[in-house]
């Protein structure tokens, strides 16, 4: 199954993310965001961050999760490439994210994502899997 695909958006970047379950969907959404930001091919690293979050509902939790990773990217200079969601409820998340410092090779950076938007964001369950469309402000 595809993890995500970009869909055309006139001014920003839209991604259509898929997951076999909700955890998978959250991990793939994070992967999609960093795949837009940087070249993730064959990337490895030994940095690890633990993230714990709460939000009012699952859609907002997804945005909060991506926001948190984006904040760490900008302030700690980390490119995240692997994600492990350990706990996920309607409004609570605990996860590990693995990263490599940007400084190792700045040429890996592709696109600056300014923020994750709420615009049209709605997690949907289809027959076998979950999906969501996310618009990044770039």
């Amino acid at each position: 199954m595809k993890r995500y695909e970009q869909f055309p958006h006139t001014s920003d970047i839209g991604v259509h993310v898929y997951g076999k379950d909700l955890r998978d969907l959250f991990e793939n959404a994070a992967f999609a965001m960093f795949d837009v930001i940087a070249d993730l091919e064959n990337i490895s690293g030994d940095m690890e961050e633990t993230i714990e979050l709460e939000a009012q509902d699952q859609d907002l939790l997804l945005v909060a999760w991506l926001d948190e990773l984006l904040y760490k990217f900008f302030t700690k200079g980390l490119i995240f490439y692997k994600f492990q969601v350990e706990l996920l409820t309607e409004c609570e998340l605990k996860a590990k994210a693995f990263a490599r410092p940007v400084a190792v090779n700045r040429n890996r950076l592709k696109t600056e994502i300014k923020a994750v938007t709420y615009s049209g964001l709605k997690i949907r369950k289809s027959d076998a899997d979950y999906e969501v469309e996310i618009i990044f402000d770039v």
Binding site: H9, T10, S11, D12, T117, Y118, S119, I135, D137
Partner: peptide
């Protein structure tokens, strides 16, 4: 004008 998020650009 073009497609933005929330407001149009």
């Amino acid at each position: 004008i073009h497609w933005g998020y929330g407001f149009p650009i």
